[in-house]
Measured scan of single mutants.
Amino acid sequence: MPSETPQAEVGPTGCPHRSGPHSAKGSLEKGSPEDKEAKEPLWIRPDAPSRCTWQLGRPASESPHHHTAPAKSPKILPDILKKIGDTPMVRINKIGKKFGLKCELLAKCEFFNAGGSVKDRISLRMIEDAERDGTLKPGDTIIEPTSGNTGIGLALAAAVRGYRCIIVMPEKMSSEKVDVLRALGAEIVRTPTNARFDSPESHVGVAWRLKNEIPNSHILDQYRNASNPLAHYDTTADEILQQCDGKLDMLVASVGTGGTITGIARKLKEKCPGCRIIGVDPEGSILAEPEELNQTEQTTYEVEGIGYDFIPTVLDRTVVDKWFKSNDEEAFTFARMLIAQEGLLCGGSAGSTVAVAVKAAQELQEGQRCVVILPDSVRNYMTKFLSDRWMLQKGFLKEEDLTEKKPWWWHLRVQELGLSAPLTVLPTITCGHTIEILREKGFDQAPVVDEAGVILGMVTLGNMLSSLLAGKVQPSDQVGKVIYKQFKQIRLTDTLGRLSHILEMDHFALVV
């Protein structure tokens, strides 16, 4: 994948999101292997301009796509893939009243899908469409860049269908997702969380590099694949309309690839034109409109599966009536509230959605109805927002919020430890010299600072030695090549209790 991002070429006709291997024109390309080798690009942008032909009021008969309808489940399912879809609609009884809503608040519980998330729908649909058009064949390999849930859905379907599955996901995604993927037989590649989507090191860039190296491999490409919004247009939206008897006044959905909100909203605009569509985008993402909503100094966020630093091709923002931004604290607070007060075992993005819903639905009156999409299960986040310690460490809970008995030293300040200034190293000294210094002084790690004293990161003896043994660096290389740029900081005025929580999850903390 090139470091400079080429513009994806656009073909003359058809839909841009065809499933299957992508040609340089962004659509299915038939021909000899030699032709494909000559024409197939190194990668295709996940934010390529959409060429979708959908228009409100256009006859369904003019759609270029294969459409399906929700099917009634048999008493005995032939395999677990038949437990994807037909998820329950559940009334939220307490939270709406707590925040003064007059309307009825309903939750579409997508964590009841077989793999635990709304992404099971698009995973199965992308595979079925690729099999139907002859792209996927027995023994082929599926590769997908994902925040985890699409990966789980694909790995689940691949396990049943017999495909090899490789999932490329950023490091910030939970260990629970990784464990589930491994249990399903998927191979996992992790990428830096802070890598831009168009960087060769991003999950998108690495996935395309693997595709170019592995024979008979395919990126189904949830960011561009029409099967993504079509899955929701054909099934999720129809289920909502049936469950609500066609009567709903507002739908609120958090947005990642945009397939969920695009597919549902398009069908609702056709069948229930008075329904307002509300999009939820986390602070630090750029999906919301108008652009002024996205202006923030924050560039990272903890909530998973929603928000991006690019506009995915499948996201149709014209069908969203209003956007709201959400933050991590309210997302996790509301997710825990949904679990504790409503018994809905949902993930953090569901918290984002409901946090926005109780604001947006203030305009609705008694007798009206708001539906929220709860995308995934708490299963993926047992060591994250479900953990009091994690919430404390991230600053989303305060010590006084917890009532468990603490040891005698818990409320003492870090400054009472009488710490001395640490050994520091410059980023320009060599790895070999740094190892000598650390061994001589008896230290395992040291902060790396520039000549102005600005902290650049941390270097550890173990990481340097393993990097040297693996051949990633040489003793003569500058130590700046092996620094940890993500590390926890703590102030002298913070409590030892807070430091204790940090050290339970990290090997060190830097006192500043």
Rank of each mutant, 00 (worst) to 15 (best):
P200R: 14
P74F: 07
M250C: 01
T13L: 10
C109M: 07
G116V: 07
S32Y: 10
R132D: 10
R209D: 01
T87E: 04
G148K: 02
D120R: 02
K82N: 14
V90E: 05
K102I: 08
L101G: 01
E9L: 03
L81S: 07
T68I: 15
D129L: 08
D234S: 09
R121V: 01
N93C: 12
K98Y: 04
D179S: 08
T150R: 04
D198W: 04
K247E: 08
C272F: 12
I127S: 06
P273Y: 01
L268P: 00
P88Y: 06
N216F: 06
E40P: 10
S217C: 05
L42G: 14
S32D: 05
L42N: 03
G134Y: 06
V10A: 13
M173S: 09
G148H: 00
R209E: 12
K75S: 15
S61H: 01
L241Y: 12
T53E: 05
G153C: 05
P273L: 14
A253M: 06
R266Y: 09
S217Q: 05
E201M: 05
T68R: 10
Y163W: 00
L56P: 11
S23Y: 10
K25N: 15
G274Y: 11
I166V: 15
F197W: 12
M89L: 12
G246C: 02
T260K: 01
E37C: 09
H66M: 10
G57K: 09
D120S: 06
P200W: 11
V189A: 14
D198S: 08
N194M: 08
I142C: 05
W208Q: 11
A69S: 05
I142H: 00
T135I: 04
A231H: 11
F197Y: 03
C109H: 02
D133C: 05
L230T: 08
P16H: 06
A195K: 06
K119Y: 01
Q222C: 00
R58E: 12
C275V: 12
D47H: 08
A48M: 09
K97R: 11
T236V: 01
Q7Y: 12
D35S: 08
V204P: 07
I122P: 00
K98H: 10
G274S: 06
H22G: 06
D245G: 13
A207T: 07
A24V: 15
K177G: 00
P78S: 15
P46E: 03
E29C: 11
